[in-house]
Design a protein around this nucleic acid. Structure first.
Lengths: 194, 194, 194, 194
DNA sequence: AATGAATGAGCCTTCATTCAT
DNA sequence: AATGAATGAAGGCTCATTCAT
């Protein structure tokens, strides 16, 4: 009987290493051997478990999406009022580790890749629609539906903008002020103080 | 009898070709031979005029920045009131050809590269600070300086976010609705300020 | 409590799997893991029993040779007259499973490998000399020895040629017409000899 | 003006080098860098001119086929009687450089590859059909058409068989005795002494 | 007896860059 | 001024082989 059960551990380690490598480099253009090295294994093993580099990258992106989805679900479950639901969605996007420089940079790298890869585009599209849908749903209780959808777009754009600025350290928004900026926007749209 | 005065023409053609190639690919990871081919010359000539690929890329980015700077200067010169100045800055960022898909994608590509290249980071920093300064200056006539700076940050983030969403076709904002979104934000901030 | 007596079973299964894999691929360039998989075991086990890939291939070739040798011996034992002996040798080469596409393709693959491997060359040489010797011996009773040797060469060349054409499906000779072709050749040579 | 006109020279040199490398190795499994090295250039240049390894191999096979086709055409043009035409076809297949060990081994390697590559199979099929057609046509003037076709098959099989035996040095047929063997077969089928 | 785990070596391929003309 | 020719360096991927259990 050989050493057993390494596969899930290695897959996890390789995906984590990929996030770290991509986040640090700010691009998907990292070497398989770098990723593998960070995970403490050979490049050959990465290929053994994932096939080609693209497969590992796809798995990595799915992992990022899954993390965000899970965190969002948890945060939404805690929220009671519609306003709290909207705030919960915003908060998750700027919470640790989602808003850590590496994760943010990795997100940006996948965004860029989505311009070329249909699969990446599809995955990001799913996330974008869910974010929009969640926001619109929460805000619809507080304003007309059309207004809610429009506000959701503004919030989504703000989140993306703050992400890219975080990645580039332009005005390097810290989580608290990022949240404050978006909350302020929502509050203004609601037309009353929180 | 060599053709004289070709240098400026070739440099311009190569830079334009670089913008087109990068914009189409959505990344700086395009071949020198592709760029040169679009400009109708050989890759060797591109090296002759620019040295290394990095040099051509830097020149290309400077060109994008110069275009935006020039357009901004022109638009600001036309504006009379502070409110018009703010709107002018916003409008330029969403006017043709700045907000065309290729230009937007090229911007995004350079943003990403800035994570690695100090020179790119410096160039983008100059632009970011100028945008922020211009906005803050215009808005300071309409609200307290601290509020103005804060609003400028929001506007900048919105612009970046709308750019990335344009590049990815997430909600694919058209110029008019993008401008409306940002103008709405400014108007809200103004109305709430006093 | 390890299973006992598995070795001969595994070796046989692996050799059979090698023949099948090589025959299907038409080359020795098949993966150890493919061969092992066909035998229902891991690649590591194949190494355990055979050492290196080359060793397994050599054993596989010996197996093919042994099969052919055995069949030839049986067929020759049944033959009574010299003419029958010649026909028996021919018939064996085109009988099942010797002339089945996979076996034929495997033979061809080993032929090719013999250009590089001295051991393969030696093994094939033994078989070639025995074929020639058997044919010459049978035909010597019917024609002068020199003529018999020459005819044996023609028969051997025909057999090789029909094998390669079978492997490539050039004119895709079926067993019956292949035999007819070679028998016709022998008959012609016999009729002309006296 | 750069150094010009190297392309046809390099392509020719690379194809010749490929034939030599393949002929020596007895397989298509040779390194691009080996082929390029024999041609006195880098592997990168081979890719520059041919694209992928497969493309170079296809071009190499086409070259072998073209050589044989050309030689056959020349030889047929010289022949007067049908019997001479048949002999001419045979003679070409065993003439220099067609029957030189390297060329023969290269042919064999491509034969083997044809089991996997549809393109190779197609190319070889064209050649096989032309050989058969040429032979049948020549022999049809001397015997019934059905007999002629059957004899052509025998001749083709003999040629293939003698090629493979040449490649493997089994009985290592020299050109003269190879021709004699095939001519003898044709003569026997014609039913009369030459 | 048997295998999952793991890797080193090797090859194809790409591409920026240089050079001679 | 311009380019075809040419290459070195680098990265992805495959596969036989070894090892610990």
């Amino acid at each position: 009987m050989p050493k057993l059960g390494m596969e899930p551990l290695r897959r996890r380690a390789l995906i984590d290493a990929a996030v770290a490598a991509i986040g640090e480099a700010g691009t998907l253009d990292v070497r398989m051997s770098d990723i593998a090295g960070r995970a403490g294994v050979s490049a050959a093993l990465a290929h053994h478990y994932f096939g080609a580099k693209d497969d590992l990258l796809r798995a990595t992106m799915r992992s990022l999406l899954a993390d965000l989805t899970r965190e969002t679900r948890i945060a939404l479950a805690r929220a009671v009022t519609p306003r709290q639901r909207a705030s919960a969605i915003v908060a998750v996007n700027f919470s640790e580790p989602q808003f850590s420089p590496d994760i943010v940079a990795a997100w940006l790298a996948f965004y860029v890749e989505a311009q070329r890869s249909a699969e990446m585009r599809r995955l990001l599209g799913v996330y974008a629609r869910r974010l929009h849908s969640n926001l619109t749903h929460a805000l619809s209780a507080l304003m007309p539906r059309v207004q809610a959808a429009r506000t959701a777009e503004g919030v989504a754009a703000l989140i993306d903008g703050l992400y890219i600025r975080r990645a580039l350290k332009h005005g390097a928004p810290d989580p608290a002020s990022a949240i404050a900026l978006v909350e302020d926007y929502i509050t203004l749209k609601l037309g009353r103080t929180p």
